[in-house]
Nucleic acid binder design. Structure first.
Lengths: 112, 112
DNA sequence: GTTCTCGGTTACCGAAGGGTACCGAGGCAC
DNA sequence: GTGCCTCGGTACCCTTCGGTAACCGAGAAC
């Protein structure tokens, strides 16, 4: 790993809370906008729109519009997106397994 | 992975650009404040202070002060911090190797 | 005595994050 | 007709994030 400082700007994108969760949710295939909104608890409509747009711009996922009414827009990981998914999986797993430890550490810190 | 939504708040911490870079920089042992500042190109003094404090609070690293003058403060990963380091390594590596692809995708998107 | 160092803290302020209300067009019930 | 629903997205607005710059205190170097 020769230049971690150049990675800074990339981390600004993929090291985003919502981006990580979106990529994770798309791991099993394409999803529609509203499906993502329902699957990712707590994300607002605006943040979903904005983050999807950013990820599309960066080539992580594709956006496919079918011109029907009501609108049908589906999002799917690109090849690069799938490699990103693999790279982020350990971090997501870590977050879930260590959530209680972090809560405990934080409580201990705040009681000092 | 049963509850990705609870992971959201954890990701708010560890999925932070600066936190990822700090954890990475500490992988080879303790570092002093100014060493970190020099190693992590582009971080401001304020963000280094704030992020270190958050990571200490969450039990990712320890802060050791030696009461000498000039001050000597060193930061070191905890056991949990080292497991986090392992979980984030793939993402950092991915960021560095895919930086050019992302730049290209973004340029293509913006030219549309 | 002036200036440098380390490891911060604080005030200021612009930029970015993020929630809510609203939109448009078709379908359906009545 | 008239309501009201859905889907995907935007406009508005407030709040937090985060960079810059100034300051600190005590020793040490010049």
């Amino acid at each position: 790993m020769q230049d971690p400082c150049q990675a800074r700007e990339v981390l600004g994108i993929v090291g985003d809370k919502w981006a990580l969760l979106i990529v994770r949710t798309l791991k099993d295939g394409p999803r529609r906008f509203t499906e993502l909104k329902r699957a990712i608890d707590g994300i607002s409509q605006r943040m979903l729109t904005v983050t999807l747009r950013d990820l599309e711009r960066d080539g992580i996922l594709t956006r496919t519009v079918r011109n029907v009414m009501p609108p049908h827009v589906s999002y799917e990981l690109t090849t690069m997106g799938r490699t990103l998914r693999e790279a982020t999986a350990p971090l997501l797993e870590w977050s879930i397994t260590h959530l209680p430890h972090i809560d405990a550490a934080r409580a201990a810190y705040d009681n000092r």
